[in-house]
Design a protein around this nucleic acid. Sequence first.
DNA 1: GAGAAATCTGACACCGGTATCCATGTCCGT
DNA 2: ACGGACATGGATACCGGTGTCAGATTTCTC
Lengths: 345, 345
Amino acid sequence: MAILVKKSTQPTINDVARLAGVSKKTVSRVINQSPLLNGDTRKRVEAVIAEIGYVPNPQARALALRRNFLIGLIHDNPNAQMVLNVQQGLLEVLRDTEFELIVHPVDRGSGSMLDDVRQFLERQRPYGVMLLPPISENDTLAELCAEIGCRFVRMGSAQFGPAANMVASNDREAVRGAVEHLAAAGHRRIGMIAGPHGFRSAFERQQGYEQALEDAGLPVQRTLVAQGDYTFESGMRAAERLLDLAPRPTAVFCSNDEMAAGALHVARQRGLDIPADLSIVGFDDTSIASHLWPPLTTVRWPIATMARAAALKLIGDNDEIADEPQDALFVSTLIRRASVAPPSA
Amino acid sequence: MAILVKKSTQPTINDVARLAGVSKKTVSRVINQSPLLNGDTRKRVEAVIAEIGYVPNPQARALALRRNFLIGLIHDNPNAQMVLNVQQGLLEVLRDTEFELIVHPVDRGSGSMLDDVRQFLERQRPYGVMLLPPISENDTLAELCAEIGCRFVRMGSAQFGPAANMVASNDREAVRGAVEHLAAAGHRRIGMIAGPHGFRSAFERQQGYEQALEDAGLPVQRTLVAQGDYTFESGMRAAERLLDLAPRPTAVFCSNDEMAAGALHVARQRGLDIPADLSIVGFDDTSIASHLWPPLTTVRWPIATMARAAALKLIGDNDEIADEPQDALFVSTLIRRASVAPPSA
DNA sequence: GAGAAATCTGACACCGGTATCCATGTCCGT
DNA sequence: ACGGACATGGATACCGGTGTCAGATTTCTC
């Protein structure tokens, strides 16, 4: 038997007012917990609300209040796990508030990206938006949000300036620690699979890599750095280039787990033993890292925590968010698993 | 320098009307492409709109039209890749429409799940919602949607009835084919890591497994079926139980890729060679399947295609969606990769 | 050129909330 | 008993769109 969709009509504030024998405004006061209400009237109204199952219409509310309760998540991130981690962090905060989450992915690289976002912002006028890397690194985009008058928070891999509404991590330091770990294990030829050109996160992580090499007294060599675009496939291609070198690097740091997985894949294809023949370190600590075999040593990027913080900034009472943007810094830590060992020979 | 958020005021339909020297309604006609408009007036209004950058307020529109343009995605699925695949399929359809996507994850198992969903539906009154498995298998939930009067489409692993607004795949047949493939390779002891009890998808897939065994003249043994809950960790635990058996199964079919990855992980821990010592088949063909080593033979579940179809059903002009729910069936196919081989001894 | 028909346009009410502001009722001091 | 401070509640306008319907204009017909 078919399940039919009733064309039911939802009770409105007028129905409540009529049944309770009060005016709309009084009902509105009850809903909004106004303090200037007789306890008796309040109870009567509440009883009616409960009885007929009245729920305020958010669209009408939004119209009257000249604001809505939508938080936008704008991203161009191909990494499902990361996006979902962020969503989870966000929703944890949004749960039990009246806010709802609107997800708006955009085409990276598409020339109309800015127009797309502008249209989204102008149409929905979300209360606030959250910008995920890598698109969050785009200053023009941030300026667009500001111009339109939309609260925003950017998640990123480094402080961009004294005040850029940034919730950031310390990627450079974290990567430096990770590569140091490789050097300390005895590796002298440490390759890197870097992120795409023009991305702040890619830049920061590469800087960390180079600093660690310098600290360890190792030469920084162009050929040891292959570039990917944060996808598994690009990680494979980059790894192929690195593994074709002679002598082969004995370790490789990858700018994210996805590319590390690609590198591991290629190494396996070539019959290399991980970690004996090649040590691999990733970045992000998404679930793929611990699921791989061997489990991947990686930098844990506290993305869900950052998302929670960003959400709190967005919906916080702090109305000065725009005038006094505050940045927050989160610390990434190295998670040691089984994909790193001293070089074999 | 801080990026300031301007408290700008958006132009309204009244501004446009005043500047163009016409009435609100005429502007509304221009926006809605009403055919009964003098070309001249239309152009004048359009010019003003373009000049002052007018964008209609969706909240006001929603209020006046007594409907909005929000599509809800309700899910309790822990699998990030799958959820994102669905989101992608959905958004592909929603892009270039005026619909926006609201994501509303719920706590599986939480006792308040139905209340949570009810609150979401009553508050947001989305134009339509999409229910993802496993929560989509919950008939009570579907009835709730119908009761509230919200369009909905359920994605699932089998037809639930003659008309249940279902976009479904043929899991049973697909699994039968997959297990047949194992039997054809010469496996006689084929284990299964099943999904959680009470889930339709889990049931369908187990039925497919059992049918394949019967078809191949193999005994259906309780001990060869271990149960998981679709997570990596549960896959590990289930695999441990199966690999502890003596004699050990030489192949295992897993109800999803995530658990297959867990099984692969455990096999590796025990020093087994895949596929020589153990053949593994998964289900879903999420990206993890091709990223694993060895690449996983798996059933491709066309979830993004299904999501597109579901989205079209939701936003389609077809107003009878409620009265004449139509089901659609999608075919899953076996993707042969390297995790299956004939048994070694 | 007058009247009818077809075409366009605008005044007005309405969607379901909130804000403003004034009218009433209550309690108190004198 | 009267006036004023204070607490409470209601009438009304408004947010920014859309629907209705009547009136104005144009076009067509004879």
